[in-house]
């Protein structure tokens, strides 16, 4: 009996590797190993051509902390802080827009909901460069929107709403809004409305009713949405590059610069390590929260 069961288990394991093996191997070879190499580079010394050479050193990390030939500078901390702040504010904006939108959709007749949801998502199917370029056209100094802002005195004359932090915030929120809408919709569609009515029977109303009956039920969706928006927004490259300019630089552009314009691979790799560290912290925190709340995600691997 024991050997038969063992044989069964072994044949299962063998089939598992035959089917899943090639794909897993592909990801390991073309992503896991490359990212390992990249992180390893952070511990090498920079050569004159920007490529990593021996000896091993931690110079790149002191560069990240702001120490250079000219002494200490806080520029990197500013960039990191700005990236965190932009990602946080953009995530909040998507939450504030997605809740009314999602509940508008779920309160429509059932046959209208799919098309309303589709219309909220379709813009995200266009290429990110095109989407971001569209905001450049809308916010540049010669566009009517900037003109209105100038007349109202929101911005000084002859300046546009881009490039700058505001444009980056708009671009990030626009880009990632659908990533908040989809998980929230999935949660809102399954909402148990009898709880809401029970709350109303107990004379709860307004914000109290919302936060005690609706909000807890949409919390798993909200947490997924925060992950799906916050992480890519924090590491975004296209939006700050096209809408930000030098004064609104985010971590992504700072990293990319070390591999393109002024090559310094070890420094770039060390910065990447920082980006990955914050990404992992975010993931772990929200995973813990989701587990504590008992939010099942359906058919997850």
């Amino acid at each position: 009996m024991g050997t038969a069961a063992q044989g069964e288990a072994r044949s299962r394991a063998w089939r598992l590797w035959i089917t899943s093996g090639p794909g897993l191997f592909w990801i390991v070879l073309f992503l896991l190993i490359p990212s390992g190499v990249m992180l390893g580079i952070a511990f090498f010394t920079n050569s004159d051509f920007g490529s990593p050479v021996l000896p091993l050193s931690l110079d790149s990390f002191s560069q990240v902390a702001g120490y250079g030939i000219l002494g200490w500078s806080g520029a990197n901390f500013t960039v990191l802080l700005r990236s965190l702040l932009q990602a946080g504010v953009a995530t909040s904006v998507t939450i504030l827009l997605a809740y009314p939108l999602v509940f508008f959709i779920v309160t429509r007749p059932a046959n209208m909901r799919p098309v309303l949801l589709l219309f909220a998502i379709v813009p995200s199917w266009t290429n990110q460069v095109v989407r971001t370029y569209a905001w450049m056209e809308l916010l540049n100094p010669f566009a009517p929107v900037s003109h209105v802002a100038q007349v109202l005195g929101i911005i000084p004359p002859h300046l546009g709403l881009m490039p700058g932090d505001f444009a980056v915030l708009v671009g990030l929120s626009y880009n990632y809004l659908p990533y908040m809408v989809v998980p929230l919709y999935a949660a809102a569609e399954k909402l148990d409305w009898t709880l809401v009515e029970a709350g109303r029977d107990l004379y709860a109303s307004g914000a109290k009713l919302f936060f005690n009956t609706v909000f807890p039920q949409t919390l798993p969706g909200l947490l997924s949405g925060i992950i799906l928006v916050g992480i890519p927004a924090f590491g975004d490259y296209v939006v700050p590059q096209l809408l930000g300019g030098d004064k609104a630089m985010m971590l992504g552009s700072l990293i990319a610069d070390q591999f393109t314009f002024s090559p310094d691979w070890p420094y770039g790799a060390a910065l990447t390590l920082i980006m990955l560290a914050f990404t992992c912290i975010g993931l772990i925190v929200f995973r813990r929260l989701t587990q504590r709340l008992g939010g099942g995600e359906g058919a997850m691997l």
Binding site: L24, I27, Y237, F259, L301
Partner: peptide, 23 residues
């Protein structure tokens, strides 16, 4: 296997792209 499959989905695309560039 799950960790490996989620890696490309979770990794910021900039880190993804630059890792490949170096590799």
């Amino acid at each position: 296997p799950s960790l490996i499959i989620y890696l490309p989905i979770i990794m910021p695309s900039l880190v993804f792209g630059i890792s490949e560039l170096i590799f």
